[in-house]
Design a protein around this nucleic acid. Structure first.
Length: 500
RNA sequence: CGGGAUGUAGCGUAGCCCGGUAUCGCGCCACAUUUGGGAUGUGGAGGCCGCAGGUUCGAAUCCUGCCAUCCCGACCA
């Protein structure tokens, strides 16, 4: 049966080649594949139904993972009193420059048909649109915690936040974005650290097994740490242009927020102590990662586990009787696939020709396409096309659902493998600063190099090359070496890259 | 906030130097013929040329101011 043909899919209409202009390619793809569009508000995007359905899949999967590890969802207000931000010094330093502030609560008509802010309706205390919720949550936790018996508190919130970024990019950095933020409170430092690590592992598991995105688990250096954290863990991924993307973070906050908001509890020994905290989050940026890691000039390439449509069926027919015949068969196939939990779309629109539909679903990254015409109906076959490998084959209708199920699994793994190989090919150990700089220009990617451990050296390298330390990998082997910049002794390599 | 660019139909554009109510393509609508990789023909609809002033008999075009968006940088998930 299987005649495998590589179908040369052309560059999609209106999408520039990824090699020609990577940023433009990314923007074109987001817009043309119908994930999102620009809104009237600077830096804010409209997430369209197709894009949002990917987010819903991300949400549903992670939400279950959080619940399976004992977390519950709650919701805290969008607006935070300004005074809350002055309580944790490093936290406010980190976010002050990018906060949107609500100062008034009323508009009025100026008598000339213009709507203006009513200056009489000025707020006593300004409200900040949350850039993150640590402050309001810790202010709340103060009232929830008196004894060790009240701990741990394991709460997550799905929410929108706003950071007035100077420069925005669809999905990667928008002013408003959707995310989840977990905020937990613990009786001991050990327990909080264990929680921080557990959530990092959940993120890594999700990235690799659902998104098909290989990630490096590691810790941030002091320079790159979250504002207010003692330790920031992260997962770092490599995009197809050789730039790194932080895909998720998990912070060990120590007792910083407990001290700032005076959250004490009485422990088993009847002593008062401050509570230990963590926070962790991933955002709609994951969709950006998904696009940049896997897609090509013909459009998105979505991993089956997160694809809103896993299989699309395109009928090819000349007369209505033929369509009826095909539709009857497809109804049976659809039923079988749905029983296996596979989402199917039967596109029988007669307003578009098959070729146009093929192109459309390639652009949208649908993993598998089934085409059925009268010829197939006579032969008892269908044509199956894979988005990831761009191959198509003719297969028997018998056992098709089974075959599709297996293929989807194979595609999921293949997408991961491809990204994994790309990362391997673009991760280099370098031992001199010259080589470091040369690699950044000639073959950007992860650079594994020795560093003397000082913030000054890290900063200088950043200033001179735009590369930052993405993380100190968790599974790092200890090895004697010399810092690429200063030549001072170092005990391990760290991971550098230019990043989004 | 610095540098660059751009605003003309739903989208992409020509016209601007050298002033006379706007070009072409895609898309859209109708009908017909089509349908195994982005159909074809015929007919049709759609525009306060980003906004506000100014110059002029007359402004998409010249002048002034403003606004917005995108790209590159510094900042950040």
């Amino acid at each position: 049966m299987h005649s495998q043909i590589l179908f040369p899919i052309n560059m999609s209409k209106g999408v520039i080649s990824k090699d020609e202009d990577y940023s433009q390619w990314f923007n074109d793809l987001v817009i043309k594949s119908d994930l999102a569009e620009y809104s009237p508000v600077r830096g804010c995007m409209i997430i369209k139904p197709y894009g949002y359905s990917i987010w819903e899949k991300i949400q549903a999967t992670l939400d279950q993972m959080f619940k399976d590890t004992g977390h519950s969802n709650a919701y805290f207000p969008l607006l935070i009193p300004k005074s809350f931000f002055s309580k944790e010094a490093s936290h406010v330093d980190g976010f002050a420059k990018e906060c949107a502030v609500v100062t008034h609560y009323r508009l009025k008509n100026d008598g000339e048909g213009n709507i203006i802010v009513d200056e009489d309706a000025k707020l006593e205390e300004e409200l900040i649109i949350r850039p993150t919720s640590e402050t309001i949550i810790w202010n709340t936790y103060k009232g929830w915690i008196q004894s060790y018996r009240d701990l741990p508190i394991l709460v997550n919130q799905w929410a929108n936040v706003m950071r007035w970024e100077m420069r925005t990019r669809l999905f990667l950095r928008t002013s408003e974005f959707l995310w989840q933020e977990g905020h937990t409170a613990h009786a001991t430092s050990e327990e909080a650290i264990a929680e921080t690590e557990q959530m990092l592992n959940i993120y890594a598991d999700f990235a690799e097994n659902w998104m098909g995105l290989p990630v490096i688990k590691g810790r941030k250096t002091a320079n790159e740490r979250f504002a207010g954290a003692l330790d920031t863990y992260c997962i770092e991924a490599l995009m197809q242009d050789g730039k790194a993307l932080q895909a998720g973070t998990s912070h060990f906050l120590g007792q910083n927020f407990a001290k700032a908001f005076d959250v004490k509890f009485t422990n088993k020994e009847n002593f008062q102590d401050f509570v230990w905290a963590t926070s962790w989050g991933v955002s709609t940026r994951l969709i950006g990662a998904l696009i940049m890691a896997h897609s090509d000039d013909a459009g998105l390439v979505l991993p089956p586990k997160l694809a809103p449509i896993q299989v699309v069926v395109v009928p090819i027919y000349k007369h209505d009787e033929e369509l009826d015949n095909i539709a009857a068969y497809v109804a049976g196939l659809t039923k079988e696939l749905k029983a296996k939990g596979i989402s199917v779309k039967f596109d029988k629109r007669d307003t578009h020709r098959p070729g146009a539909k093929f192109a459309e679903y390639e652009l949208k990254g649908v993993p598998l396409r089934v085409a059925i015409g009268s010829r197939d109906m006579q032969n008892g076959t269908v044509e199956l096309a894979r988005r990831d490998t761009k191959t198509k084959e003719t297969v028997n209708q018998e056992g098709l659902a089974q075959h599709i199920e297996g293929l989807l699994e194979e595609i999921q793994q293949n997408i991961y493998k491809k990204a994994f190989n790309f990362r391997a090919e673009n991760t280099t150990e370098v031992d001199t600063y010259e080589e470091f700089k040369r690699m950044l220009d000639e073959q950007p990617g992860f650079l594994s190099a020795h560093w003397d451990g000082t913030p000054e050296t890290e900063q200088r390298i950043k200033d001179e090359t735009k590369a930052t330390i993405r993380c100190i990998p968790l599974d790092n082997k200890q090895e004697e070496g010399k810092c690429i910049l200063t030549g001072k002794p170092s005990s391990q390599r760290v991971l550098f890259a230019r990043a989004y």
